Amino acid sequence: MSEISSRAADRAAEGAGDPDLVRARAGDGTAFTRLVAPLRRELHAHCYRMLGSTHDADDALQDALLRAWRGLARFEGRSSLRSWLYTVATRTCLDLIGNRGRRALPVDLGPSSDRAVVGDAPLTDVAWLGPYPDTGLAGGPADPDARYEQREAVELAFVAALQHLPGNQRAALLLFDVLGFSAAEIAAVMDTSAASVNSALARARKVVAEKAPSRTQQQTLRKLDDTRLREVVTGYSTALERGDIDGLVALLTEDVTWSMPPMAHWYRGLDAVADFALRIPLTRCGSWRSVATGANGQPAVACYLRDDDAGAHLAWSINVLTLRGGRIAEITSFVGPEHFAPFGLPASLP
């Protein structure tokens, strides 16, 4: 992955002579808010890559900006304000990683199940990876290639692979390969040597190469015409709403996987996935409604399940679809209404 820094944002919000910076150093909170506004989204995405959770990213960014506000007098302008804010945000995330550990997907916990597990209960003692709304990627560089790179850096497979790295390796990889920091700059961020940074980078790249596919979703989606992409997303939604197992199976690869954090069980292969789909979501759960959305730079479907007591379809899961060619190779259903608000989605549908 290449550098995705926004030089326009640098020019707009940095420099020792920036009037807002001068005012902010003098204690003007409104000026500080204006100063960091162009950078909030990219800083939030960075925190998500580091932490694997939108909610943790919210907390980290809030804490980082508070730290930056309190320490603004120490910013001397020798680096860009953007770089300094990334330093503060990265250190904040490293503190959180040290306290909370890494986030997981069901595939990290054990082997797949051959048949549907009825009554699968959520595991509440696991810190689960969460989805990231594509709206958080808006407002980035104008160059389409840069937007693709930004989306690659939040793809599920990449963020999941990052979770297998210690915090220092995770930070080094993101700062160098995604954001374009030099080894010397990263060493200053992490209070270590450039040699240690280069060593951390080498180890991190090895793990990510083993855990993440060589072909990114952005490469796949660029080769897929819009008509086929709509057919896949609409076909998935329609099959779920109609209980159509044949329609669903027609969309899947032979080695498809389906996981549902916070449920521990997951399924691999067409037979196992079809058995799960037929026995649970397509028949046992009841009436579904769905809304197309985007998560982690990938197509996604927000699913709502009918609740007769509430008289409505209630938010149930954000289903992130990983494609290979024109078919679905992975379905990751992030179960829980707490995932819907960051996507700007309602808590219920009629």
Rank of each mutant, 00 (worst) to 15 (best):
E231H: 01
R268Q: 14
S199V: 09
E231T: 12
N168Q: 15
P131C: 07
A60F: 02
K211C: 15
G119H: 13
A153V: 09
S290V: 03
L345F: 02
V301G: 12
V291S: 04
A9P: 13
T257S: 13
Q169H: 05
G101E: 08
R78S: 11
T220F: 01
L252S: 04
K206I: 11
T192I: 10
L282H: 03
Y132S: 03
T192N: 01
E231D: 08
D145Q: 11
P38D: 00
G167K: 08
Q217N: 04
K211L: 15
S112E: 11
W266T: 12
T33S: 10
G180H: 06
P281Y: 00
D108G: 06
P299D: 09
A329H: 15
D108A: 09
H46I: 09
D177K: 12
L321P: 11
T135C: 12
V335A: 00
S53N: 12
R49F: 11
P133F: 10
Q150L: 06
P38N: 06
A295I: 00
V320I: 03
G325K: 00
S2P: 11
D59Y: 13
A146I: 02
G101N: 03
V118E: 14
T332N: 11
Q163N: 14
L165S: 09
R205E: 07
D59P: 00
D108N: 03
R23I: 00
D275I: 08
W266Q: 12
R324T: 11
L175R: 07
T234H: 08
P38L: 04
E14R: 06
N319K: 10
R289L: 02
I97T: 14
P106G: 02
Q150R: 10
L229Q: 13
R70H: 15
K206Y: 05
A209T: 15
D95R: 04
A45T: 08
A12W: 07
K211M: 15
S196V: 08
L129R: 07
L221Q: 05
R91C: 06
T54M: 11
G311P: 09
S6M: 07
A347V: 14
T234E: 14
V197Y: 00
T227C: 10
S259I: 06
A45D: 10
R102H: 13
V335T: 08
L201H: 04
G110D: 07
D309S: 11
G269Y: 04
V291E: 09
V208C: 04
D255P: 05
W266G: 07
S6D: 15
R324I: 06
V126K: 02
I4Y: 10
A239Y: 03
S290L: 00
V36I: 03
D143I: 04
E231L: 02
P144Y: 03
P350Y: 10
F32W: 02
D226I: 07
V118S: 13
G77N: 09
S290Y: 02
N198P: 00
